[in-house]
């Protein structure tokens, strides 16, 4: 699976949950400062990502460290490498 497909899935969560314009979703954007999300939104972000990837994320410590959208892309690239079954699921759902 290409990084582009992964980004597409992650960005869809941001568009659906937070009504953000897809055009502004670039890796350097900071989640709180630039995308104007807050702690309540982060709960919804985790729920959305859980739903998209089909894996439990509520207690994922690394997810708590994210600062930018790029951090999320990198983290999920790693998660997909660790869970090869996700690749098929995400490619199918594209």
């Amino acid at each position: 699976m290409t990084r582009e497909i992964l980004i597409e899935h992650i960005n869809k969560v941001f568009v659906d949950k937070f009504e953000l314009d897809p055009a502004i979703l670039t890796p350097e954007k900071r989640i709180f400062e630039d995308l104007e999300l807050d702690s309540l939104d982060i709960v919804d972000l985790v729920t959305g990502l859980q739903h998209t990837f089909g894996i439990p994320l509520r207690d994922n410590k690394e997810l708590l460290q994210i600062r930018t959208l790029g951090d999320i892309y990198n983290l999920f690239e790693k998660i997909v490498q660790e869970h090869p079954e996700l690749e098929e699921k995400l490619t199918k759902e594209q």
């Binding site: 309540l40 939104d41 709960v43 919804d44 729920t47 739903h51 509520r58």
Partner: peptide
């Protein structure tokens, strides 16, 4: 959501 066992899929709000 409780009935359907999807309580944690709800919004934080």
């Amino acid at each position: 959501a409780i009935v359907n066992n999807s309580f944690y899929d709800q919004s934080a709000c």
